[in-house]
Amino acid sequence: MNIEELRDFCLSLPGVTEHFPFDETTLVFKVNGRMFALTDLEGPLSVNLKCDPELALELREHYPAVRPGYHMNKQHWNTVDIDGSVSDGLLREWIMISYKLISEKSRKK
């Protein structure tokens, strides 16, 4: 997956918008005004994704490309290096998990 495919997939989800709230290189995807995915347009491609804390730990143990969320709450966020070691299908699945966690939480409020 490259940055264009990542962006296209995130924007294909219902209600998703993109923003640059931090600087001109940190692309943030939001649903209902809340972040569910972030990526830096400079440097090696990676994405920060929201995750259930237990699943976050499990993914870090099984995938070297998954690590605690960079500049995020490490209990609830993972950074996934998009280096080809994780399939695009699995990456899309993890993006959907993040999207659903945020959109469901937003609906409850």
Rank of each mutant, 00 (worst) to 15 (best):
I97E: 11
R34L: 09
G89E: 15
G89Y: 04
W77V: 02
G84T: 09
L59D: 07
E42K: 13
P44G: 02
V47Y: 08
H76Y: 15
L49W: 09
E61R: 15
M35T: 09
K74G: 06
E93A: 07
G69S: 04
Y70Q: 01
A37L: 09
L41H: 02
M35R: 03
L90E: 13
S46Y: 13
R92H: 10
L27Q: 12
P64M: 07
K50G: 04
V66D: 06
Y63C: 05
K74Y: 12
L45R: 12
H76F: 09
E58D: 13
C51G: 01
R60D: 04
L90F: 13
D81Y: 14
W94V: 06
R34G: 00
L57D: 13
V66R: 04
I82D: 08
F36K: 08
I95G: 02
Y63P: 00
H62Q: 15
K50H: 01
T26F: 01
V80I: 15
P44M: 06
G33N: 08
N48W: 01
P44F: 01
P44V: 05
D88T: 12
N32E: 14
I97A: 04
G43I: 07
A37Q: 09
T25S: 13
N78S: 02
D83Y: 04
T26V: 12
H71M: 03
V31F: 07
L90T: 12
E54N: 08
L41Q: 15
V66F: 08
D23G: 07
M35W: 11
F29Q: 12
Y63L: 13
G33R: 04
L57W: 07
L57H: 09
L57M: 08
F36H: 09
F29L: 10
E42R: 14
V80T: 06
T79L: 05
T25L: 01
K30G: 00
I97R: 10
D52W: 02
A56S: 14
I82Q: 08
D23V: 05
K30Q: 14
F29D: 12
E24P: 00
A37T: 05
R60W: 06
L57S: 10
D40C: 11
K30W: 05
I97Q: 10
R34W: 02
K50A: 01
P21N: 09
L57Q: 14
G69Q: 04
V28S: 09
F22L: 14
N73V: 02
Y70W: 12
T39K: 08
L59P: 05
G33T: 06
V47W: 10
D40F: 00
T26Y: 02
N78G: 01
M96D: 11
E61P: 00
V31T: 11
D52C: 04
I82Y: 10
K74P: 04
L90R: 12
V86T: 11
T79P: 05
E61A: 15
C51A: 13
P44S: 14
P44K: 15
N32Q: 11
D81H: 15
R67Q: 13
E24K: 14
K50F: 02
E42Y: 00
Y63W: 14
E93K: 10
L91Q: 04
L41G: 10
D83H: 06
W77M: 04
G33C: 05
